[in-house]
Design a binder for these strands. Structure first.
Lengths: 255, 255
DNA sequence: CGATCGTTTGATTCCTTTCAAGGCAGGTGG
DNA sequence: CCACCTGCCTTGAAAGGAATCAAACGATCG
């Protein structure tokens, strides 16, 4: 890797994702090209934005994983969701002047800032893109609802299995191809904080899954051994496979 | 009440909420006036939209409460959030052609439909309103994150206290005035499904809160006895108090 | 090579569930 | 007008899943 400058596609991962769902006209493409600022690198564990802190920008993930978390008065933490390349993150600071939750890098990351004012202009001038971002946010809300369901109503085995399927589904939606082995940059503590479990119990649950032949592990690498069985076991629904845009007018319909 | 036709403000509760945060020009007001279809009544327990069902419309809550829920293969239910007047609901069916979760009336309700295509045109032509809807969705996502944190990381007493504060905060943001007594249309089973607890334990937790002098109950009416103490106890943050719109261009800035 | 962070394992405790059943209020039908 | 049903609230006893407490082990790092 070249240290002199960021190496990632000239096109933003967000622009690529949008273009995959929406056919953009010249104006819209130009607006997206000007949206993001200079790329920024993060190392594992580095906070990008802390809850309560003033926030003037959102960010686009270009490379790496991050997570969004809350901290309780007693110090315990809940991880709300994980973010992957192409995600527009820091949306929790849109409705207020301060960040509503904390963003932390999980792996080495590259992100690009989007000033809130610029996002506002994008919404005002290129509403179709705004509509797509709205749909993306809606899909993410559904995914968070699935997590809440998992945490609120299922035991540790189901929660962990669902999380693994969920992570795999997102990696697939980015990577394109079929992924069946996951390289997990997460510690068992992180996983526990995402699932509402202690790290000790996460560990026991991993072992239980191995013993049952649901997964195989090698270091940080996890392989899902029987897809169909896991999906049947958890009732998992992939929310990332696609996002409908037919409810948005096509270019002509803009009038 | 007059049965001949719906009795609620000519103005939609959504338009009122938007206008409270954003100063609308004539065009935008007109667009909002045409957005919603004929009002529809619901009785308690009546489903408005069921997960998996094809969905062509969202809805605006004009009166009453509803909840959004998921059901697991084994029949258990998780309530994801409650909806109140002024909320745009059914957004979980935006990214797909089918509803992503189930909407059910909690009390007597009046809702008005918004066709997805009409919402799409609103986004494309009146992007500032789209931006506001995006901010509203972001605030709701943060609130759901708070719920997830509560369910994943706190015990029954904290969860219930937080829920009561949350419900009270939303009623206040609608009702305007100071509300300290809540008229709960929810059964203890509903509350359990929202908090990831059994109805039995919800009951014991209510009693415990009474015993500790945190609340008083009379039928379905709950009174929060010591605000400051409850807020300190839970670390509750009111996410509904306000929504920033200064990141959106004002009318002039539209260009 | 000590130090630190993360994983693993065991023993015990505890919060919540499960199972069971009585009580109460509102609605229905005779 | 009242017996009867049904849904919801309430309470008790026992069982269970996960947390807590404790400690050993392994790997990475300066």
């Amino acid at each position: 890797m070249n240290r002199a400058g960021p190496i990632f596609p000239r096109k933003s991962a967000l622009a690529i994702r949008i273009a995959r769902h929406l056919s953009l006209d010249r104006d819209e493409e130009a607006a997206l090209d000007l949206l993001e600022g200079a790329p920024q690198k993060l190392t594992p564990g580095e906070p990008l934005l802390t809850a309560g802190e003033p926030a003037v920008s959102l960010f686009v993930v270009q490379q790496g994983w991050l997570h969004l978390s809350n901290r309780l008065p007693d110090g315990t933490r809940q991880i709300l969701r994980f973010h992957y390349p192409g995600d527009l993150i820091g949306t929790s600071s849109i409705p207020w002047h301060h960040a509503g939750a904390t963003l932390t890098a999980v792996s080495d990351c590259i992100v690009t800032p989007v000033r809130k004012g610029d996002l506002g202009r994008l919404f005002a001038r290129h509403g179709r893109i705004g509509g797509f971002l709205y749909a993306m946010a809606a899909a993410e809300a559904v995914a968070m609802g699935d997590r809440l369901t998992s945490v609120g109503r299922t035991d540790a085995l189901h929660r962990l299995a669902t999380l693994l399927l969920d992570i795999r589904a997102r990696l697939r939606s980015t990577a394109g191809g079929v992924v069946d082995t996951i390289e997990l940059p997460l510690t068992q503590t992180d996983i526990g904080d995402a699932l509402g479990l202690t790290k000790v119990h996460v560990n026991r649950t991993f072992r239980e899954m191995e013993k049952r032949g649901m997964i195989a592990r090698a270091g940080k690498r996890v392989t899902l051994l029987d897809d169909a069985a896991l999906i049947a076991f958890t009732g998992f629904v992939d929310r990332y496979a696609s996002i409908a845009t037919d409810w948005l007018p096509d270019e002509a319909g803009l009038r």
